[in-house]
């Protein structure tokens, strides 16, 4: 089983990203479970979303304490003291940032991917919704699933012009992510 934890803020699409990710893995025959944890739904408030993927049915219904991958949608959340808590050895870190990746932020990290998802989203989508771009980056950095699987499920969540722009955003995330292996 792989466990992915996504940190974002209300309105950035963390919850949707977790769900899209789950859908994409279903395309590849995996079992999935994804849920967010928040109280009141408020724009700007920190949100954490969880996605589990496995070859066999997933039974656990707890929050994720020992993630295999952390995706940070809002770079401002890098200062969260608990961000890397419980990280498994050899895990993956995906960051939305216009800057370079910080030098191996945690000992347990094996792969880091950084992409200016906000920049790309503003350019392609016209708004700061970096989630689909980060999914593309995730696919490229982890190789846990194909970009095509992500592109294939986006129409379940989006439609029309916005869908087209998000498809493009995901593709650019896939291509433009800067991957570091430690």
């Amino acid at each position: 089983m792989k466990e992915i934890r996504i940190h974002g803020r209300g309105g950035q699409g963390a919850v949707l990203a977790a769900r899209m990710l789950a859908s994409a893995f279903v395309q590849e025959g995996k079992s999935v479970a994804s849920f967010p944890m928040y109280g009141f739904e408020r724009r700007g408030a920190p949100v954490v979303a969880f996605t589990r993927i496995d070859d066999k049915p997933i039974r656990e219904k707890t929050q994720i304490y020992n993630p295999d991958c952390i995706i940070v949608i809002d770079p401002g959340l890098l200062s969260l003291p608990t961000l890397f808590t419980g990280l498994k050895p050899e895990s993956v870190f995906i960051l939305n940032s216009p800057k370079k990746l910080p030098e191996k932020p945690n000992d347990n990290l094996k792969i880091g991917g950084v992409v200016d998802a906000t920049g790309i989203a503003v350019e392609v989508i016209g708004r700061d919704i970096p989630n689909t771009c980060l999914l593309g980056a995730f696919a490229a950095a982890t190789s846990w699933l194909k970009l095509e699987s992500i592109l294939k499920v986006l129409p379940d969540y989006l439609s029309g012009d916005i869908l087209q722009r998000n498809l493009k955003s995901a593709e650019r995330g896939y291509k433009e992510v800067e991957v570091t292996k430690w």
Binding site: V26, A33, F35, I58, K61
Partner: peptide, 8 residues
């Protein structure tokens, strides 16, 4: 937990 849990 289940209300927001996305599963197949």
């Amino acid at each position: 937990y289940l209300s927001y849990l996305a599963e197949a």
